[in-house]
């Protein structure tokens, strides 16, 4: 518990990085929210008539909030790589020489803080939407469930980011690897329809977030992601234990 608390303290006492990340996130969510509302309201349905696009507006707005997952990923990576970068990892391992504990606790911290990053994004989206199209919005139980999934997704992505960061040990390398996976590797692998359901981002977006045609159930998505979390986590622990801190 005290180790977990000190991880949160580390994040809190390095405010510049966190504030930078937060501002970037809010900018992306603001733009995403604005363009979502703009394209929905300019589709030209007469007032009072609910076009299909408008009926999905709430859902699309929550989609805009889910861009905070990107920042949860970066934060997850940073939670460990900034320690390597600034050499504070030395002190961390002196306090907790059993390195698998460090990885585990940081994973938990990255998940919690990753999910916490959704809160400001959600508030910003709600404020913008309320001002702009407040009268047309109806958030019900279904939307609430979708929001819950965004929190869950952000926690997962934070933990994944931490594992990638711990495995690679370098900020830029870890972030580039994550982006290379998202931009090239997984799309390329998706060509084989039979393995697509087992790919991590597919499991995350379709299964956990419930995007697209929702062909993957939440349970299946979580199960797939859990396998990746376990495999990456094991790799991260092995690599972290081997690393010489010089």
């Amino acid at each position: 518990m005290r180790l977990f608390a000190s991880e949160l303290l580390k994040i809190r006492t390095a405010p510049r990085t966190v504030i930078g990340l937060l501002l970037a996130e809010l900018a992306v969510v603001a733009v995403g929210t604005a363009s979502t509302i703009d394209s929905a309201t300019s589709s030209g349905a007469p007032p009072g008539f609910e076009s299909p696009a408008e009926r999905n507006l709430e859902r699309d707005l929550i989609g805009a909030v889910s861009s905070s997952l990107l920042f949860a990923l970066i934060l997850g990576v940073l939670v460990i790589t900034w320690e390597y970068r600034h050499g504070t990892i030395t002190q961390t391992f002196l306090v907790t020489p059993v390195r698998e504990r460090v990885v585990g606790i940081k994973m938990l911290a990255a998940a919690v803080v990753g999910a916490a990053l959704v809160v400001p994004a959600l508030i910003l989206m709600l404020v913008i939407a309320e001002i702009w199209v407040g009268d047309k919005l109806q958030f019900g139980g279904h939307e609430l469930a979708l929001m819950g999934r965004v929190f869950l997704g952000a926690a997962i992505v934070g933990a994944l980011g931490l594992e990638i960061g711990a495995g690679i040990g370098r900020q830029l390398g870890a972030i580039l690897l994550a982006f290379a996976w998202a931009a090239f590797v997984e799309p390329a692998l998706s060509i084989w329809g039979s393995i697509q359901p087992y790919l991590p981002l597919h499991a995350l977006f379709q299964g956990v977030l419930g995007n697209g045609d929702a062909s993957l159930s939440l349970g299946r998505g979580l199960l797939t992601i859990a396998v990746y979390l376990a495999a990456l986590g094991t790799t991260a622990v092995v690599l972290t234990r081997r690393r010489d801190i010089t």
């Binding site: 580390k10 006492t13 390095a14 510049r16 990085t17 600034h86 050499g87 990892i89 030395t90 306090v95």
Partner: peptide, 17 residues
């Protein structure tokens, strides 16, 4: 091995915690 953005006291607080 210090985070340059932290104060000396905060660094020690992190270690102590």
């Amino acid at each position: 091995s210090f985070h340059p953005g932290r104060s000396g006291r905060d660094h020690l607080h992190v270690v102590a915690a």
